[in-house]
Design a protein around this nucleic acid. Sequence first.
DNA 1: GGATGTGAATGCATTCACAGCA
DNA 2: TGCTGTGAATGCATTCACATCC
Lengths: 229, 229
Amino acid sequence: MDPTKPESVPNPAVRRLSLYLRQLEVFARKGRRTISSKQLGQSLNLTDAQVRKDLAYFGQFGHPGIGYRVDDLIAQVRRILGTDKIWNVLLVGAGNLGRALMSYKGFDAKGFRLVAIFDNDPSKVGKRQGPFVVESLNDLRSVIDQHAIRLAMIAVPADAAQEIADKLVEAGIRGLLNFAPISLNVPADVALNAVDLAVQMEQLSFLVNVPASQPERTGAGGVIGDHRG
Amino acid sequence: MDPTKPESVPNPAVRRLSLYLRQLEVFARKGRRTISSKQLGQSLNLTDAQVRKDLAYFGQFGHPGIGYRVDDLIAQVRRILGTDKIWNVLLVGAGNLGRALMSYKGFDAKGFRLVAIFDNDPSKVGKRQGPFVVESLNDLRSVIDQHAIRLAMIAVPADAAQEIADKLVEAGIRGLLNFAPISLNVPADVALNAVDLAVQMEQLSFLVNVPASQPERTGAGGVIGDHRG
DNA sequence: GGATGTGAATGCATTCACAGCA
DNA sequence: TGCTGTGAATGCATTCACATCC
């Protein structure tokens, strides 16, 4: 597998990459220097083969007989995910969720920096929100250009979300994280991820209703919304 | 496919079920009476065959030549997901995210009712938060029993999350939605879903770095975190 | 011995394509 | 004609199992 040609990497592998990184950072904090695919897999409830294959899609990072050097692998995975550089991010929506996102720490530690907040509501524009001043959507283009912003989070009501998405795309945004409970339409060359609280809860509802299988203890990891949706 | 034996339903199909429901509710609000698998699929960027197969895992809901009756299908999907009844839900963590979750509307409309808030921090216990009074984790068991709560949301810092999860499971919770950026360990018979903001953003970072394919407009749906993890 | 990286084999999920019904 | 439901075919992801290297 040629690391310079990531065109054929399975989507699920990319999702797991984020989980590997998160887990590697835990091991690094504990002082671990190396880790095997087996150990990393166990901590996420995945097989060793899965871990090795996922990583091998991007290059040869391991050392036979040794495993992976933790610091090394962290650096490699960050590079692959693109978070070895800082991403400036903007947020639209200064409601309850928006404010929670603004004050979310451990965002910076992952390579993302929230640099601007926007809201539709004229009565909110110009007001302070924590360290930010809410800006008008009319200034979208100029703020995006000024800070070289490529990623945006949408935390507005469902009925406003598509209109906001359109404006963001038109103003040059390349990736969207949508928190509104609605399907967004964007050009195929714009990345889209979504988090819908109700959808998450519905999955739990389904799983709890259907009796579960064998009750052995199971490692469990983070979850990724995927699906362009 | 026998609707009374849901044991062999593909996981991705269940995830999409939530998206179908969300979209069906949109069509219902617009006054649509029936809808074809093609139309439903288009609105979510899925093929008609995918929609039909997914629904057929659970029963025969459609009418050849006609499509699906919207109201009917909504009722069926709710029943399948278990949201035709109300679920009482509790939340642990009265921080920024917790407060945003407390005030999230359109939660009730989906069949979930937040009935209690807990926090580790003694200085928060007993204080009002919106319509709630923050309770102590010592009262977990009694509150869970009293309200027949089976689902919980965890919105606490990463280093407290596992301990909270253990207590919740021990107190009888059957499904967890974890917002802390860490892998949780729970027994296999407890349902687990997770939302990690940083993981979501990392996926966007990756996608934006890799040049996208053909720029044709694409329908897009909601996203589901899945993966026990 | 202990571990990786990887073709080959398996298993799952999606798509095709069509019989059958309204 | 229009559309569903579904076996069969395809395609994708995971797992196996082993050659290879420290």
